[in-house]
């Protein structure tokens, strides 16, 4: 394989993987705290893409402003989902919250169909992100391909700082081990949970925006497949672990892009790799790459 093409694939894999990672972080935070698979998370991601589409293309706002507005609106949606559909079910069996999550996912997708129509809409990319940069050895890259992983890594870095160097971050980590004990320490658990939903939604919004730029279009069901794959990435990395989610996302991105790059005949099976990887890791290391082993209590 030529260097140029390999670098292209590498950058593609890196940006796809970091997008999976950004979404996976939101799954892993919520799951770590509430043991809830937030099925609506992929749809939050879709909302981020739509908001930026409307802000910049329909209302002709500047991209910077549009991105900020989209992130804020998406975060509000994420918080509303928690407040309306999950908070009343905190004490309920976990399946109830899970079904509620499935209901919310259906709702957001179909509400999007009603409001935005089911037609995919093309996204006009800002030209500055698309102008190829040429290197001396013949490698050509578009700025967007580099921007995506850089933004993703910066954001996950910021999240890790928040988790490990601030008080709310400490509380968030504590809650994921033992909600009751954390409450005994004077922590308002619901606020911290809301913070986790807010942060997760903001990251999903960023991922959605970058996804809309990379595959330049938006449609109501665009969150479904990336959502499930990002969840798989979170499980793969060890659910509950933020670095694990990012690593899981990157591995998934690389497996998908590289397997098709090296074995083009397998392209039809591309979506199966994620699930195959998932099942393999669950069988051989059920807690994921960075997950902690939990002792059964009898």
């Amino acid at each position: 394989m030529e260097l140029n093409i390999f670098v292209q694939h590498f950058i593609n894999a890196l940006s796809l993987g970091s997008l999976y990672g950004l979404v996976a972080v939101g799954y892993t935070m919520v799951y770590g705290i509430l043991r809830l698979i937030n099925f609506a998370h992929g749809d939050i991601f879709m909302l981020g893409a739509y908001f930026v589409y409307f802000a910049t293309i329909v209302y002709k706002l500047n991209w910077g402003v549009g991105v900020v507005i989209a992130i804020i609106l998406t975060t509000i949606c994420g918080l509303l989902v928690d407040r309306i559909a999950y908070k009343p079910l905190r004490e309920a069996p976990r399946i109830s919250a899970l079904i509620s999550a499935i209901g919310v996912s259906f709702f957001i997708e179909n509400f999007a169909v009603v409001v935005f129509t089911g037609m995919p809409r093309p996204v006009v990319q800002p030209p500055i992100l698309m102008k190829p940069i040429e290197f001396s050895n013949g490698v050509r890259l578009i700025p967007l391909g580099i921007l995506v992983p850089v933004v993703a890594f910066l954001l996950v870095g910021a999240l890790l700082w928040l988790l490990y160097c601030t008080k709310p971050g400490l509380a968030m980590r504590a809650i994921s081990f033992d909600i009751e004990t954390t409450r005994m320490m004077g922590v308002s658990v619901n606020k911290i949970i809301a913070l986790a939903f807010g942060l997760g939604s903001a990251l999903a919004a960023v991922a959605g925006i970058m996804w809309a730029l990379r595959y330049p279009r938006v449609e109501p069901f665009m969150g479904m497949t990336p959502g499930i794959k990002a969840f798989i990435a979170a499980v793969f990395g060890g659910i509950g672990s933020v670095p694990g989610a990012m690593i899981g996302g990157l591995i998934l991105g690389f497996v998908e892009i590289m397997s098709v790059a090296f074995f083009p005949t397998l392209s039809g099976y591309k979506d199966a790799f994620a699930f195959l990887l998932l099942i393999l890791i669950l069988l051989f290391r059920p807690t994921g790459l960075l997950g902690e082993k939990l002792e059964d209590k009898i």
């Binding site: 079904i99 509620s100 209901g103 259906f106 709702f107 179909n110 509400f111 169909v113 009603v114």
Partner: peptide, 14 residues
């Protein structure tokens, strides 16, 4: 209104 059916249905489910 396409999609409305599932919107109502999902609300009922929640």
């Amino acid at each position: 209104i396409p999609g409305m059916r599932m919107v109502i249905f999902s609300l009922l489910l929640i």
